[in-house]
Design a protein around this nucleic acid. Structure first.
Lengths: 352, 352
DNA sequence: GATAAAAACGGACACGTATCTTAAAGTTGA
DNA sequence: TCAACTTTAAGATACGTGTCCGTTTTTATC
């Protein structure tokens, strides 16, 4: 086969050798052009550039890394449950990383596959691993330790309390303190807790915050709060909120303030209460969590806690980037994000 | 430095040579164990396995591929707007791919960066590229052609009408025909179209479906439908729906059926109509699109079209998998998914 | 304990790329 | 035209791994 025919179809070019043959230059010369080295005639550079246009030649990333080029890849682990806040965090983080020319490798952690995911990331020689969400604490602790042993930086977003972990998280405890103070200031003393029956660390932290706020006013969690939760996990949060609200109404003991684990449950409950003839916020106050768009939908609009996702991810980036390609930090680093109470019409003074 | 000390910290092992030294075997022997070749003593295999446990050694994926191993990677392009349906498709697809031991490389396509993304995928030697969502038609057509030239299979999900593209998509035209028939059977003859003023192909397809259904009964689109859309894109779909509903009420000409571009706009509109004193479905019918969980929230629950995402992605997998690692198909393939009308309380007979 | 079979060793090469080095070719200036 | 300089060519080596192959060591069998 003659090698001097430049009419080779584009599909055939799969290596720099073949590409150099197509251009009609030495492979080393082409390589120098591709890597922007000095001492090349503009005409030569132009020739190579045009050939790239014509053939669409793309160097093999695997060979590049083998030759010492950084992989510029970050592994991101996310939890199975793709809630809107998780998706937004993921999207924001990937966007910020992309701005710094980093690629992200995204994997969903499911029960039992986390070792496999970490192994895959290590095999891909990621420059860092980020965990977004809530995971099995033992697994997570182990992974953080293993990554440390492999000189691979890590960052845990939203799961606080992991030993030795670099952590960025909304201060969920404080978030609930802020919300409780808001309601306590309105005079509320009896609280319904909706769907807080999750074993997730994030929910426990929030319960602590509720307890703290009550204790600060000399109140006791167990005496002020009540619940009618169903099985966890839930199929449909709206329906569950509605169901719980009805359960409270039917029990005859209706607290003055309803605090839901998230906005969906809160809105479901709000509808349930309204259908039972209770007025929001005149008869009962309702509060959610996450400050999703959906908060604006009901009448009145839902009071909620904003996670400040952009700020969280911004801080995550600030923590992560300086570690990439550097020797591992000795001490781990924890940054808590201030929550933001968004008070709307669904909360108001207790009926006197 | 003595090489016989097996107390080397795990972090130092970064190649099979170092690992073999740690185990105390020849590199070739270790390699044969790792690749499950025959003719090895069980004891030797055990020794290597234990060393893997101890050191956490993971072969370099980049070197593996260079030696001819498949990358087992699929590139997935998604659109900028992470709506719940897109997220669910992405998650489903990634899950199915993972079951077949494929990794996915996910990149967001933003205006102007699509070439860069495709180049990155090609550089990573992905075995296929999947597009989920709606993109610039010219770009997409070009990418499909380029991937063909590179012998790389592709699949376009949800964007129909791309020349030469393998496509899997909900039949959006039919979806709207089905919904229109539902409403026409109820006697509706005047329709409000809410927020259909998007240039996206998916929206145009749906408008065609609406027109077809009307034409089939001898009706004319322009005479039966009206709109009060605001600027596109919208900040908050609920608010926009509410605003449009109010605009209809204030105009004094209120159609009997409201058809929204999605569930959020529909629910916003429903609230707007109810606040203006209109009863749903006695006075007006309202229908959405996507059948999100949120459809169950309003009273009455919202009639919507289900995209049948699981089925869509299932078909996508069936189309994609046989192409991986195979010579390119000559003819492109188009599969349309049947939509599913989910009729709920928000639609009913027209007021007589 | 001798012999054969099984297992492990260790050198060599390949994959696609970057980079260093030395040599050759081309270009410029006087 | 020749020297001096610039540009390109081409060879060699390296990265981490798999695999082939000839050789050596270990194990099993009688």
């Amino acid at each position: 086969m003659s090698t001097s025919q430049p009419k080779t179809p584009t599909s055939q070019i799969r290596s720099s050798t073949e590409f150099a043959r197509y251009v009609g230059l030495a492979r080393t010369t082409v390589s120098r052009v591709l890597n922007g080295q000095p001492g090349l005639k503009p005409k030569t550079i132009e020739r190579v550039k045009r050939a790239i246009e014509e053939t669409g030649f793309v160097p093999n990333a695997y060979a590049l890394h083998l030759k010492g080029k950084r992989t510029a890849t970050v592994g991101i682990c996310i939890e199975n449950l793709l809630t809107p806040p998780v998706v937004r965090k993921l999207a924001s983080l990937q966007r910020l990383l992309r701005e710094d020319n980093f690629t992200s490798l995204i994997e969903v952690i499911e029960p039992g596959n986390s070792d496999k995911v970490i192994r895959h990331f290590l095999s891909m020689r990621v420059e860092a691993v980020v965990f977004i969400g809530h995971f099995n604490e033992d697994d997570l602790t182990r992974h953080v330790a293993e990554l440390g042993a492999r000189e691979t930086p890590h960052l845990v977003i939203d799961h606080v309390g992991i030993k030795g972990a670099n952590t960025v998280s909304l201060d969920r405890t404080k978030a609930m303190r802020v919300l409780m103070d808001h309601l306590l200031d309105y005079g509320h003393r009896t609280f319904a807790l909706l769907a807080f029956n999750s074993p997730a660390r994030s929910v426990l932290d929030r319960l602590h915050g509720i307890g703290d706020a009550l204790a600060a006013r000399g109140l006791v969690l167990e005496q002020c709060t009540s619940a009618h939760d169903g099985v966890y996990p839930r199929v449909n949060d709206f329906e569950e909120g509605r169901r719980i609200a009805r359960a409270f109404v039917e029990s005859g003991k209706v607290p003055t303030a309803f605090i839901a684990v998230n906005d969906e449950v809160a809105i479901g409950a709000m509808h349930g209460l309204q259908e039972a003839g209770l007025r929001v916020p005149q008869d009962v106050s309702v509060a959610g969590f996450n400050n999703l768009d959906v908060c604006l939908m009901p009448t009145p609009a839902l009071t909620s806690i904003d996670q400040r996702i952009e700020e969280t991810i911004q801080v995550a980036q600030e923590v992560l980037l300086p570690q990439l390609g550097q020797p591992l930090r000795a001490r781990s680093l924890v940054r808590l994000i201030e929550p933001l109470l968004v008070a709307r019409g669904s909360t108001g003074p207790v009926r006197s």
